[in-house]
Amino acid sequence: MMCADVQQQLVHFADGELEPARAREIERHLAQCAKCRALLGALGRADGALRALAREEPPAEATQAVRGALCDVLEHEQPPAARREIMTLDEVAGYLRIPIEDIIESMGDLPTFELAGHVRVRRTRLLEWIEERERAHVGSIAESDLARILSGGLLPRRIVAGRG
């Protein structure tokens, strides 16, 4: 086999796509031709570099900028706040019909977490938390109360403002 023939089929050879007989011919050539061997090595390194390059991170500032822009869109444009799982403190205040000041005052108690540098509350966690607080205060929560809370109705102030 000539070098040109081998080199033309080198990618197929490396990927194991050749007939066994053809692959053996190429192996025999490679055993005695340093030039073609070097090209096969270079192919492996080129493939490795491609994999590394496809996974390179964008610059950190760019990632931060996009995250900031995303937070704006996700919070202000959609989906409808009434159905959102992740709530801002303002939304929690609106949802519980409690002044935002009260929410901020009792923030240490609320099941909050941080998302891209902002304080957020998960709706399901909030509902669990309300239920726990109700239990702690009145033993067990009346079903009508829970229904009222879940439907976004008025919540007794003591649930959020009261401590222990």
Partner: peptide, 11 residues
């Protein structure tokens, strides 16, 4: 999840 309101899913 995101369409149902979970922002973290989009992140």
């Amino acid at each position: 999840r995101y369409v149902e309101g979970d922002e973290a899913a989009f992140h």
